[in-house]
Design a protein around this nucleic acid. Structure first.
Lengths: 145, 145
DNA sequence: GCAAAAATTGCGACAAATTTGCAATAATGT
DNA sequence: ACATTATTGCAAATTTGTCGCAATTTTTGC
């Protein structure tokens, strides 16, 4: 059972990048958590990593496929990508912003991979969000705001 | 053949909202166009609607399911959602950022609607982005950064 | 190990994007 | 048309994201 930090180190090494303290801190902040806003990540790294550096680290991680940026509701959020964290899809209520996970679906995955291949793309990852109304809001008579 | 603006009016009325000049202008700016950045929408409404109001209108439209926010590559873009504009999905190359459309797929649509229903959600829209490598970049020897 | 070279980080200043308070306008119901 | 309520414009405040550069840390070649 591989230590995630070792995995991170390997991926970085593959791209001639080193595992620095800042990178490890940001990585830890993202580990085993629900997707977080940039603000939350900054907060989690408070006092340990400077804001500008966090942006730089996240940007690097994105280019290396270590983190993914997800549009969830109104703001984007960040999460570790497939190799580090089993990612799932989300459904967001357009009214109250409540978010639930969509059950995993291997058919869908294969389906998307085929669609990508039909355009000569090699799929690395994907992002799916369903927008709609949760049961509560669908039942509510009108819109409060 | 319904006038899209009439449709807009109906949706607004359903939520006890009125069709104001600002809302119609923003709606028109989004009609029959590729997804646009907020900046592009602001530009299109220049002199007609104040920037702060555009944000407020877009926010309302999102809550009403009239527009959707799409993450395309690094930035988000806005487009009218399903009822107003037949939307398609995108695939973005993580290396060179080239974007292509994914062929429409009715199966997928129904599939997602079912998934939403399984969590007692009423689907209003969805967003799918596939990240990967285009043929050109997949063939390229290494990553510059 | 150690010193030089290269890459990364912190910091403060910027620039861009988004939100908010409030007075002025426009829309709605009677 | 009038009073009431919602929407808009404007300017200021906040929040987000970037940049240049000096200080540190990491890597490389002895």
């Amino acid at each position: 059972m591989p230590d995630p930090v070792d995995q991170l180190k390997i991926v970085l090494k593959q791209h001639s990048q080193s595992l620095t303290a800042a990178r490890q801190t940001v990585f830890s902040a993202l580990q085993n958590k629900e997707p977080q806003t940039m603000h939350e990540v900054v907060f989690a790294c408070q006092g340990q990593v400077n804001r500008a550096s966090i942006y730089r680290v996240i940007s690097l991680f994105e280019r290396l496929g270590i983190v993914q940026r997800l549009q969830i509701g109104w703001k984007y959020k960040l999460e570790l990508s497939g190799a580090f964290h089993h990612h799932h899809h989300h459904m967001t209520c357009t009214q109250c912003s409540v978010t639930v996970q969509i059950p995993e679906d291997t058919h869908l995955e294969q389906h998307l991979r085929d669609a990508a291949a039909s355009q000569s793309f090699v799929m690395q990852g994907h992002q799916l969000e369903i927008q709609g109304l949760c049961a509560r809001c669908a039942a509510a008579p009108s819109m409060p705001l």
